[in-house]
C-alpha cells in the first residue's frame, strides 16, 4: 500500500504518428520521440489487464480512449461483475465511476498513491503519466545493437523541484522509438519496479509492444500484465467523451 508506482501505463492511450527515422540522436530527442510515438491526437484501445499475486490471479478487460496528454477515459468491459466501472482523467485530477451505485467520486490526494483497481499501477501512475519529458533531464548511457537495430539506454534524472518520487529512471529505447523497458529506482539507486514491453507487432498501423508487464523488483510473483487486444489511432475524439457524463455512459 505504501509503495508508489509511476508512469507509462498510460502510454497505451497516448499515441501519435510521427514516423521514426532515427539516426544518432541525443537523449532528449529520444525521449521526446518515443513519447510522441505513443502519444498523439487520440487513440482507442482494448487491453486485458492481469493482476498476478502468489495466491491468486485475476484478469479484466479495459477499453480506453485518450486525447492529447491530458485527457483519458476508460471503462471495464469484463468480467461482468466489474463491467461499467470507469476512470476519467483530466490533467492530474481523477474521477472514478461505479455503475452499481451510479456515482462518480473524485479521488482525494490521499488516494492518489493507492493502487489502481488493485494493480501494480497507482492512481498517480495514471495521473502523472506524461511528466517524464518535463520533469527529468536525460542522458544516453549506452548503445547496443540487437537484430540490426540500435537500442539506447537512457538515464533520466528528475529535476530537483519536480514532484516525482523516483531517484532515477532507466529506459531502453529502440532507435524506432519503441520503449523496451523502463526501470524505476529510488534515491539510493536501488531498483523499485520495472516495466517491460514485449512481443512487438503491428497494431493500428504501427509497431507496438503488445505485452506490457509491470513488476516489483523484489519478487517475480507480483506483477501486472497488460495485453493489447486492439489499438487504433485517431485524428481527434470529441470533447464530450472526456466528461463526467461520458464516464457514466461510456460503459453502457
Amino acid at each position: 500500500m505504501t509503495v508508489i508506482k509511476k508512469p507509462f501505463f498510460a502510454f497505451f492511450f497516448l499515441v501519435c504518428a510521427i514516423p521514426g527515422s532515427a539516426f544518432s540522436m541525443d537523449a532528449q530527442t529520444l525521449i521526446q520521440g518515443s513519447v510522441d510515438y505513443y502519444r498523439g491526437n487520440a487513440s482507442e484501445a482494448v487491453v486485458a489487464m492481469t493482476i498476478h499475486r502468489p495466491a491468486w490471479e485475476r484478469t479484466m478487460t479495459i477499453q480506453g480512449w485518450t486525447r492529447g496528454q491530458k485527457d483519458s477515459v476508460f471503462t471495464i468491459t469484463a468480467p461482468p461483475k466489474d463491467k461499467g466501472n470507469g476512470t476519467l482523467k483530466k490533467g492530474t485530477e481523477m474521477w472514478s465511476y461505479n455503475p452499481k451505485i451510479n456515482r462518480v467520486i473524485k479521488l482525494p490526494p490521499s488516494m492518489m498513491s493507492q493502487a489502481w483497481m488493485g494493480s501494480d499501477f497507482s492512481n498517480n501512475d495514471l495521473a502523472k503519466s506524461d511528466t517524464i519529458i518535463d520533469d527529468y533531464t536525460h542522458e544516453i548511457a549506452g548503445v547496443e545493437e540487437q537484430g540490426g537495430k540500435k537500442i539506447y539506454t537512457v538515464k533520466s534524472i528528475p529535476k530537483p523541484e519536480a514532484p516525482v518520487v523516483w531517484g532515477m529512471q532507466k529506459l531502453k529505447i529502440r532507435e524506432d522509438f519503441i520503449i523496451l523497458s523502463q526501470e524505476f529506482f529510488d534515491e539510493d539507486r536501488k531498483l523499485v519496479k520495472v516495466m517491460t514491453g514485449d512481443d512487438i507487432v503491428m497494431m493500428g498501423g504501427r509497431l507496438f509492444p503488445r505485452l506490457w508487464k509491470m513488476r516489483k523488483a523484489e519478487t517475480t510473483e507480483e506483477y501486472t500484465l497488460l495485453e493489447y487486444k486492439e489499438l487504433t489511432f485517431k485524428e481527434d475524439l470529441p470533447d464530450s467523451l472526456f466528461t463526467l457524463t461520458a464516464l457514466r455512459n461510456v460503459g453502457r
Binding site: R58, N98, K100, I101, G118
Partner: peptide, 16 residues
C-alpha cells in the same frame, strides 16, 4: 454515503 473499495478477488466493491 458512497463506499468504493476493492473486493477479495480484486473486483471493484461499491455500494451506497
Amino acid at each position: 454515503l458512497v463506499l468504493l473499495g476493492q473486493g477479495r478477488d480484486g473486483s471493484i466493491a461499491a455500494t451506497v
